[in-house]
Design a protein around this nucleic acid. Structure first.
Length: 599
RNA sequence: GGCCCCGUGGUGUAGUGGCCUAACACAUCGCCCUGUCACGGCGAAGAUCACGGGUUCGAAUCCCGUCGGGGUCGCCA
């Protein structure tokens, strides 16, 4: 071995012992006749002292050393002289007096600083990934990720789950995201697809009698990226037989709670996790993944305003729309510019008429003390002071607050207010950074109507069980059928979703036919699953929390790229490898492929 | 596919029509320095202002296009 101990494990208890260390030069401080080196390894830092009186050869070498060079140090652990201890550093009480220094490898000057946390362009973070990953923040994010995955494996193993790998080369099925495809050499013109998730495979494992399965599974979806979406990502995929929704939610809650408490006790949870139906979440928060770190609920005020003479309001009521609003606490001081900005946000969310604002004075006070002249609103000509007070009271607003109202159809109104709610919260720092506000969303509709393609699509996936009591609606009113699907959400992220699955062939075929497949297509594309279901499939269900997102919220990051070792750019490319790239014509030939429109 | 933002020495930024022969900090290179830890001091080098075109007497700065990066809507069973 090049070393017999880690930098960060050294302390005063090692005094006078000889150690052999190896690592990277984090920083060098040359004082002429004395050189300090901060040596870094995967554990942390320790200060090396190179004194020409103790080792002239080492001193000579140390003069040439630069940041990121790889060196080996033989030395003696010494207590630092009084007054030179560094309380900022875990090993700050001691230092290593060098007896021999070896240069194991030189290094080019890094393209950006490794030894601080300064901002760098995202492209450079990817182009020079190995160097970026040396940074303390990234190293600790990767460690955190490891701890999380290990916790999950231990937790589920203790509950007698079996970790089973499933293939990456599977069959493309319609529905869902665009597949990443892999051409077959043996069957030219035929393709494998990489799994969007191991969904069907884990269901087949349930049929196979594995009653508790999990996998840390890589998933692939060829869709456009977001800050919280990568084309390949990792899920904790899990599935159980003989369970109901309640069993999965309880297991998930226990897992997440113990995970967070064990990995980072400084993070707070709301327990038990609140639960909302999809409809409730939409009505109260305007989104199916609400950020529950702050209040600000959407309040329906249609009734209060129903006799108000104002174009947008009368028109909305005539069209069976709604008027809903939120209270932006202490935002009565908003400037014209800030209010205009809210307009823009509302309009881009499709609330055609924009947002109506009512300023309840600029100073905080009890609602009763509010005077008519405090009110500032484009609506003030149309709303009496009494109506405004009634509105404010209904919405639980105080003096100094800002009321935002939107009038449109229910969907657009909720949507726009949901976005405004987030905006107000982040602009005013209302979210507690240490709170992980987990919640479950349940009772999703089974199907959504796709207006473009004039067909029903699964809102979760085609294998999701409808609510038993809604089965008869499948023919008469498919849009009203609720499903046994649920999401785990946290701080405006969807951390995972799952469902109880259909375990009977007949019902599965029915759903597929509602989705628009004829009998031949059903057999061709889903035959393997249907055959399994009729061979003795137990009732089963599961959930698949996203590992990357869990790490992201626990690391306090707001981008997935900071918790994945080798992520892709927003255009799904990898600047480190330069992939995707063209391939050798011989490879194409073997696969029976020709490229159309080659540049 | 739509919309928005960004691109200035190696890095991060300043400069938003003439003060630019492009400023500052860090990094780099050289010299000095025995107690620093974001060491310090002195000095040096380093930028066709992403690329291409245009407007203008004059463009880092304004306009168009291309490329690259980011955010977002659509999309993500």
């Amino acid at each position: 071995m090049f070393k017999n101990i880690k930098c960060n494990s050294l302390s005063a208890s090692n005094v006078d012992s000889s150690v052999l260390l190896a690592g990277w030069v984090h920083r060098r401080r040359d004082h002429g006749q004395l050189i300090f080196i901060d040596l870094r390894d995967d554990s942390g830092l320790v200060q090396i002292v190179v004194d020409p009186d103790k080792s002239p050869e080492s001193y000579k070498l140390a003069s040439d050393i630069r940041n990121e060079w790889v060196i080996q140090i033989s030395g003696i652990v010494k207590i630092r002289p009084e007054g030179t201890r560094n309380t900022q550093l875990q090993t700050g009480d001691i230092e290593i007096e060098t007896t021999e220094l070896k240069i194991l490898n030189e290094a080019t000057t890094p393209p950006f600083p490794v030894n601080d946390n300064s901002e760098i362009d995202d492209y450079l973070k990817l182009r020079f990934r190995p160097i970026y990953l040396r940074r303390q923040k990234m190293a600790s994010n990767l460690k955190l990720r490891h701890k999380i995955v290990k916790f999950i494996r231990d937790f589920l193993s203790a509950k007698e789950f079996l970790e089973i790998e499933t293939p990456l080369l599977i069959k493309s099925t319609p529905e869902g995201a665009r597949d990443y495809l892999v051409p077959s050499r043996v069957y030219p013109g035929s393709f494998f697809a990489l799994p969007q998730s191991p969904q069907q495979l884990k269901q087949i494992l349930m049929v196979a009698g594995i009653e508790k399965y999990f996998q840390i599974a890589r998933c692939f979806r060829d869709e456009d990226l977001r800050a919280d979406r990568q084309p390949e990502f990792t899920q904790l995929d899990l599935e159980m037989s003989f369970v109901e929704q309640e069993d999965i939610l309880n297991l998930t809650e226990e897992l997440i709670t113990e995970l967070v408490n064990s990995i980072d006790p400084s993070k707070k949870l709301i327990t038990p996790f609140p639960r909302f139906t999809y409809e409730d979440a939409m009505e109260k928060y305007g989104t199916d993944k609400p950020d529950l770190r702050y209040g600000i609920e959407l309040i329906n005020v249609t009734e209060i305003l129903e006799n108000v003479e104002f174009d947008i309001i009368t028109k909305t009521i005539k069209d069976n729309g709604v008027i809903k609003g939120i209270v932006a606490p202490k935002c009565g001081t908003y400037t014209r510019r800030q209010l205009d900005n809210l307009q823009d946000i509302a309009r881009t969310q499709g609330a055609v008429a924009g947002v109506m604002t009512i300023v309840l004075g600029s100073d905080e006070c009890e609602l009763e003390k509010l005077k008519p002249e405090d009110i500032k609103s484009p609506l003030s000509k149309h709303l009496s002071f009494e109506i405004i007070k009634k509105l404010a009271k209904e919405m639980n607003a105080k003096g100094g607050d800002l009321i935002l109202l939107i009038a449109d159809n229910n969907e657009k109104t909720n949507n726009a207010l949901g976005i405004l709610r987030q905006h107000i919260a982040s602009a005013n720092n209302l979210a507690d950074g240490n709170l992980l506000a987990m919640a479950f969303i349940t009772d999703f509709p089974l199907l959504d109507w796709d207006e473009t393609n004039k067909r029903w699509t699964s809102s979760h996936h085609p294998f999701t069980a409808p609510k038993y009591q809604d089965l008869e609606l499948l023919d008469s009113n498919p849009g009203k059928v609720m499903s046994e699907a649920y999401d785990l959400v946290c701080n405006n992220y969807e951390l995972g979703s799952g469902s109880i699955r259909i375990h009977q062939r007949k019902l599965q075929e029915k759903i597929l036919s509602i989705l628009g497949y004829n009998q031949d297509e059903i057999v061709d594309r889903f035959g393997h699953l249907l055959e399994s279901l009729e061979s003795g499939a137990p009732p089963h269900g599961g959930i698949a929390p996203g590992i990357d997102r869990i790490v992201m919220v626990l690391a306090g990051e707001d981008n997935l790229r900071e918790v994945i070792a080798f992520p892709k750019t927003q255009n799904s490319s990898d600047p480190l490898f330069g992939s995707p790239s063209e391939i050798d014509p011989v490879q194409l030939e073997e696969l029976g492929l020709t490229i159309k429109n080659q540049k």
